[in-house]
Design a protein around this nucleic acid. Structure first.
Length: 545
DNA sequence: CAGTGAGCGAGCTTCCGCTTGACTT
């Protein structure tokens, strides 16, 4: 009996991950003999109150993240009693850096330490990972140092410079926030410069087989009086169908959610602030209802995908089942996690915002595996005929869009502008029911909503899933933007900051700066470039006195 | 003797990205 207990104690193995939720799952899969502990993200970082980088050597000083010393003391005590330590932090640049610092803290204990990677949390993938422990990838770690130090230098050297130059306190500059601010400011400038113009179109309304449809003469009259003489003539004319075409088009279902699309769609459809979306998704994740909510990968577990497709077949019929798809990954994708999807198909007992968000995720996930919608697109050109004068070159265009089969739209509705246009014969002559003048206005581009900004940033490769919501928050905290009826409006100081940066440090508000940095980091990750040389090249381009 | 300027230190502020409770308003 005693022997058994002491064997269990001495036989304890320790598995270290980032997220406590993951830890709970993994301990179930590993079972007896394993302890699984979470670091809650980074444990070491540059000090918050000073630069923490030697400007000569570019050597960084990493210190304990607040609260993590105590947390890690506990992990270290467990490690002392362990026979083996497995570091299973996320398989990406940041996760590798966490693994590095964990190993640095534990290596003097002289206990075997292995770095393991896995891309999904299933019993098989965890077991396989544990059976093939490797080393910490120092190239990835160096790339993280480069990223971190470059962001620090930009933030902590340029921000004070900006404050001094403008005589204003509390301003900030950053590789991510400054391009984001520029987007909002430049959109506002377009809106300010926008001149509203009114114009007039002539529209002909027809009816065939009790279907009413209209055709537009694509000529813009600046004043309604100019359209009047044509109206008189057209009201007496017949119209000949000079062209008719129809085409069936498939509308592909959307990809499953990743952080950016979840935030932008939930912001748009559920009217939730992106910060609220992220908090709610985190709760759903912690309760085990959805997968990890901070991801940039559309990848879906094949077995789960099959399960969802079986459900579509059972619930909607086999013609609603799509095909298993795989999506090309963007070069910035880090691939540590799957897409955001429900973990199963049992209905969880949720209400309010959590329920709404869960259902949105469920429907989007199912839709991504459903069949395309089938649309019928019809186009016609109608030309007026005049008595004695024959045909006049005034092409009136008519468009029709009809839904032949709803497909994924049945599960995940989207707004479609459907319009009726009956089948027409070329050469057919129609008498218009009425001819009318329509007043139109040119529209200024809209301000960014929180969701639209997140979507744009993701497209530009700026920011990461864990920070999209924070970027919006920072711009508000700095009083760079204010919210107006759900839209982001830049303040006076925002214009000033962007103009200053454009003049003094154009590189930092260049939308492709992050991409260029990522290319450099890629070389560091491959081991073909020195990380400090990379930081030097990028930061020296700013020339801060 | 009063005003000025240089130099110094203290205190405050600033970045992005990884992860959740433990705090305070």
């Amino acid at each position: 009996m005693l022997w058994t207990i002491s064997h269990l104690l001495t036989g304890m193995k320790l598995f270290i991950v980032e997220s406590p939720t993951k830890a709970k799952t993994i301990v179930r899969y590993l079972g007896r003999g394993w302890r699984v502990e979470a670091t809650l993200g980074h444990i070491k970082d540059l000090p918050p109150d000073n630069l923490g980088v030697d400007m000569e050597s570019l050597e960084p000083t990493f210190v304990w993240v607040r609260g993590k010393k105590k947390l890690f003391d506990r992990i270290r005590e467990l490690a002392k009693k362990a026979t083996f330590v497995c570091i299973g932090t996320d398989p990406d640049r940041e996760g590798e850096a966490i693994a590095y610092f964990v190993r640095e803290e534990l290596k003097r204990l002289n206990i075997p330490i292995g770095r393991v990677v896995f891309y999904e949390i299933t019993p098989d993938s965890i077991r396989q990972a544990v059976e093939a422990p490797g080393e910490v990838n120092t190239h990835l770690v160096k790339a993280q140092f480069a990223r971190r130090v470059l962001d620090r230098l930009i933030g902590y050297r340029l921000s004070p410079y900006l404050c001094k130059a403008t005589g204003k306190l509390g301003l900030s500059v950053g590789r991510v926030q400054s391009p984001a601010l520029r987007l909002v400011v430049e959109r506002e400038r377009e809106i300010i410069a926008f001149k509203k113009r009114e114009y007039y179109h002539i529209k002909a309304v027809f009816e065939k087989g009790s279907v009413e449809f209209s055709a537009l003469w694509n000529y813009r009259f600046e004043r309604v009086e100019n359209a009047k003489p044509y109206l008189e003539k057209l009201r007496r004319a017949l119209f000949e169908v000079s062209l008719f075409s129809e085409e069936r088009k498939e509308k592909e279902p959307p990809k499953p959610f990743i952080t950016s699309s979840l935030q932008s769609v939930a912001n748009q459809r559920l009217k939730m602030k992106v910060e609220q979306v992220q908090k709610t998704a985190q709760k759903l994740y912690e309760q085990g209802y959805i997968t990890y909510p901070r991801t940039d990968s559309h990848r879906m577990n094949q077995q789960k995908a099959q399960e969802f497709m079986d459900y579509i077949k059972k619930t909607y019929g086999s013609n609603y089942v799509g095909k298993l798809r795989s999506f090309p990954q963007k070069s910035t994708t880090q691939g540590a996690h799957e897409c955001i999807r429900p973990t199963g198909l049992t209905t969880p007992p949720l209400k309010g915002g959590e329920l709404a968000l869960y259902e949105l995720i469920l429907h989007r996930t199912l839709a991504s595996l459903a069949s395309p919608a089938l649309l019928l697109e019809r186009r016609a050109v109608l030309n007026p005929l005049y008595e004695g004068k024959g045909r006049e070159e005034m092409p009136f265009m008519a468009k029709g869009l009809e839904l032949l089969f709803d497909g994924y739209l049945r599960i995940y509705p989207e707004e479609l502008e459907l319009s009726a246009l009956p089948f027409l014969q070329e050469g057919e002559v129609l008498k218009p029911k009425k001819i009318v003048v329509e007043k139109r206005q040119t529209q200024p581009p809209p301000r960014y909503t929180e969701g639209a900004l997140v979507k744009k940033l993701e497209e530009l490769g700026i920011g990461r899933p864990s920070t999209y919501a924070t970027i919006v928050k920072t711009l508000k905290e700095r009083n760079y933007v204010v919210e107006e009826k759900g839209y982001l409006k830049p303040t006076e100081v925002a214009f000033e900051v962007v103009d200053f940066l454009k003049e003094k440090f154009p590189g930092v508000i260049d939308y492709s700066f992050t991409n260029q940095m990522e290319q450099g980091l890629d070389e560091v990750e491959k081991g073909s470039r020195d990380w400090q040389e990379l930081v030097r090249e990028f930061f020296l381009s700013f020339k801060v006195e």
